[in-house]
């Protein structure tokens, strides 16, 4: 039932956006272009070095595309969780309270935006990488379902971090700078193997911002067989824990909502 409601709101959101067709298509194309240029830069660096600390270009490509696809799922299906600040500043969150559905669900369905560029690019790269691993006999086809699983778990972890950061907005109102840190910077950092980073930073990515569980740790099992399959279970557990914690935090945040004067 909640799902049906959610998709109905998503449909309304898409229909609203299609009212401005030019803007809809143009912004999608721009986002795509931006993404491709970003990737080209990384590819350029990688091609120059060929490998980073024992990780081949394909392996880094795998890390990159897993995090990219996780982010794509999160931002597509919960777009405005990232933009809660906008609703807090304007007081537009008010109207979500008077509907008999969860406030978070309403928020998630606002301004639905299909990140087509990221989706295509991520799928393309991951397929190339998997094809390569398979051709040199590094992995078997089990990698496909496991990869899908970690992408899903990853999107939940990213969603939780995004939600928790936005929720801080109930106290701080402005959280944009913080989001740059916990979302954007963190996601950019884990595109590369964590072994590159100093221990304290590694520690952060395995605890308070557990992005390491999305791509790096599972890749140690999937690509390197350095650790056992249990790490996949750990990723799923971490995802569940993050989701639970962030939802609790969200509830507390909501009770602190101050609205705006009118």
């Amino acid at each position: 039932m909640e799902m049906r409601m959610y998709f109905m709101l998503i449909r309304a959101s898409i229909k609203s956006r299609l009212q401005y067709k030019f803007n809809f298509i143009f912004s999608m194309l721009m986002a795509m272009l931006l993404n491709v240029s970003e990737f080209l830069m990384i590819a350029f660096v990688l091609l120059k070095f060929n490998s980073i600390q024992g990780w081949s270009i394909y392996e880094v490509g795998y890390l990159y595309s897993v995090i990219l696809l996780s982010k794509t799922l999160y931002r597509t299906f919960a777009s405005d969780v990232h933009h809660l600040e906008k609703y807090l500043v304007s007081g537009d969150l008010d109207s979500f309270f008077i509907r008999p559905i969860p406030i978070l669900l309403t928020l998630m369905s606002q301004n639905f935006f299909l990140l087509i560029g990221e989706l295509l690019q991520g799928t393309f790269i991951i397929l190339i990488c998997i094809q390569h691993f398979h051709s040199i006999g590094q992995v078997d086809l089990w990698i496909i379902p496991i990869t899908i699983l970690i992408i899903l778990a990853g999107s939940i972890i990213l969603f939780s971090i995004g939600l928790a950061t936005s929720t801080l907005g109930f106290w701080l109102t402005r959280v944009e700078m913080l989001q740059n840190l916990t979302e954007d910077a963190a996601m950019n950092a884990v595109r590369y193997p964590l072994s590159l980073y100093p221990n304290w930073l590694k520690g952060i990515f395995l605890t308070i911002l557990p992005l390491g569980f999305i791509n790096y740790l599972p890749a140690l099992y999937i690509l390197k067989q350095d650790v056992g399959i249990w790490i996949i279970g750990a990723t799923i557990m971490v995802a569940c824990l993050c989701l639970w914690l962030s939802l609790r935090f969200w509830k507390i945040g909501l009770s602190r909502y101050q609205s705006t004067g009118s």
Binding site: R4, M5, M8, L9, A12, K15, S16, R17, Q19, Y20, G91, D92, D94, S95, I98, R99, P100, I101
Partner: peptide, 20 residues
């Protein structure tokens, strides 16, 4: 502040509310 879907025809808002 309206509670209708700003960019949609009025009737669409009512359809959504019916399901909601």
């Amino acid at each position: 502040r309206t509670q209708l879907w700003w960019d949609l025809p009025v009737i669409d808002s009512y359809d959504i509310l019916t399901v909601m």
